[in-house]
Nucleic acid binder design. Structure first.
Lengths: 148, 148
DNA sequence: GTACCTGCAAAACCTTTGCAGCATC
DNA sequence: GATGCTGCAAAGGTTTTGCAGGTAC
């Protein structure tokens, strides 16, 4: 992930937004945000709970509810990525990643693309009357290792 | 859904592909394909099983396994769409839809966009070595009814 | 002190699989 | 007739909720 901002700046931004919007600052919140900031790709609830920093610190239900609150406040984003489980990624303003997923081994990579979809968003808004649009773009295929 | 091809043509195409690739032609397969061809947006397993034509005809497990086989043979496509459940859509050659999802009421619309992402697919293949690429693009936002 | 957050536990959901019988080829 | 498909039933995994107690403000 491009480090235009440091971990500390990201964390402080996220916590500030959350506090402004009525959430309390807790240890679990900080640990979860740090885990998501450190991640180079979206993570599932199970993956996040598997991390030592979090599993020693809080319950799965807590992480689950935190993810919901953080998403609601707009500091993280929930993604589908074609799997049964939901994936979550840190959402720093102005940063947007699309993803590349191997349909064989499940590997997920973030793509820092010059994404032409942003232009489309406006068109879709005009055409459909939807507001607050954002998009999710994923590429699926077989990675070189899986093709052999 | 734009009806460049009739239901019958679509059905026959799908069944021909399936038979070529080793699947048997069954009543359940036909009903399921017809349901997906008739759908104006992707459907979940539960939705499909709720249809009279299917529920009276076959079990949920059968539909589930059929969806897997049909996807494997390439006549339908499995989508994420941000929900817990997987969505399935008919995949006629040369047709590709992107989707618009209301984050408030869950409404899903198919968008027949001039999609600039196809160009990106080649770039991503070259850059990453992935093969057999396809993409999934979804827009999320609030529909006019939900904004009120 | 109050309102929110956390942990533990259980429920709810969707997906996935085993196995015996039936249909297709 | 052999192989694959179907139904029923049960298991597996992830998500979601209730409630009592603890914590941030």
């Amino acid at each position: 992930m491009a480090e235009a901002e440091t971990t500390k700046e990201r964390l402080e931004w996220a916590i500030a937004v959350c506090r402004e919007r009525g959430l309390r600052r807790t240890r679990a919140m900080e640990e979860l945000l740090l885990a998501l900031i450190a991640a180079d790709r979206p993570r599932t609830l199970a993956e996040l709970c598997g991390l030592e920093s979090l599993s020693e610190q809080c319950d799965k239900a807590t992480v689950y509810r935190l993810l919901g609150r953080l998403q609601e406040k707009g500091v993280i984003r929930r993604l589908g990525l074609h799997e049964r489980a939901a994936y979550y990624a840190f959402a720093y303003p102005g940063e947007h990643f699309d993803y590349l997923v191997c349909t064989d081994c499940g590997k997920i990579e973030a793509l820092d693309l010059e994404c032409p979809v942003e232009t489309l968003e406006k068109e879709v808004m005009n055409r459909t009357g939807f507001s607050g649009l954002y998009h999710e773009l994923e590429f699926f295929g077989s990675c070189p290792q899986c093709v052999g």
